[in-house]
Amino acid sequence: MSNTIQKINEIIAKSSSFLITTHESPDGDAVGSSLALASYLRSIGKDVTIHFCDPVPELYTFLPLADTVLQTIPDKTYDICFVLDVGEFRRAGKAVASCQSITAFINIDHHLSCDEFGIINLIDSTASATGALIHRIIKSANHPISFDIAQCIYTAVITDTGSFRYSNSNPEAFAIAGEMIACGVNAWDIAEKLYESQPRQRLELLAQVLPTLTFTPKGDVASVTVTLDMYEKTGTGPELTDGFINYPRSIRGVEVALLFRELKPGSWKIGFRSKGKVDVASLSAAFGGGGHHNAAGCNMDGTFDEVRARLFSHLEKVL
Results as ranks from 00 to 15, higher is better:
121 N>D: 13
301 D>T: 05
70 L>F: 01
294 N>V: 09
57 P>G: 08
169 S>F: 12
49 T>I: 15
62 F>K: 01
98 S>L: 09
287 F>K: 04
144 P>M: 03
171 P>N: 12
148 D>H: 13
252 R>W: 03
76 K>V: 01
71 Q>D: 07
115 D>E: 15
155 T>L: 04
212 T>N: 08
107 N>S: 06
239 E>G: 09
218 K>E: 14
235 G>P: 02
64 P>Y: 10
238 P>L: 05
177 A>S: 14
232 E>L: 07
292 H>E: 01
30 A>F: 03
150 A>V: 05
60 Y>I: 02
121 N>G: 06
198 Q>L: 11
261 R>H: 01
146 S>D: 04
129 A>Y: 14
303 T>A: 08
154 Y>C: 01
123 I>Q: 10
162 G>C: 04
250 S>W: 04
48 V>C: 09
249 R>H: 02
154 Y>K: 06
101 S>E: 11
221 V>A: 11
159 T>A: 09
38 A>T: 02
61 T>F: 00
198 Q>G: 06
276 G>A: 08
171 P>R: 12
233 K>H: 04
126 T>S: 15
160 D>E: 08
256 V>Y: 06
86 V>T: 15
89 F>D: 04
109 D>L: 12
45 G>D: 10
55 P>C: 10
26 P>N: 13
76 K>N: 01
66 A>V: 04
89 F>C: 01
280 V>P: 06
104 A>Q: 15
202 R>L: 13
52 F>C: 10
172 E>H: 09
208 Q>P: 00
205 L>N: 08
318 V>N: 08
159 T>V: 06
139 K>I: 11
239 E>I: 00
256 V>H: 09
159 T>C: 03
290 G>M: 07
285 A>I: 00
257 A>Q: 05
120 I>D: 08
138 I>Q: 07
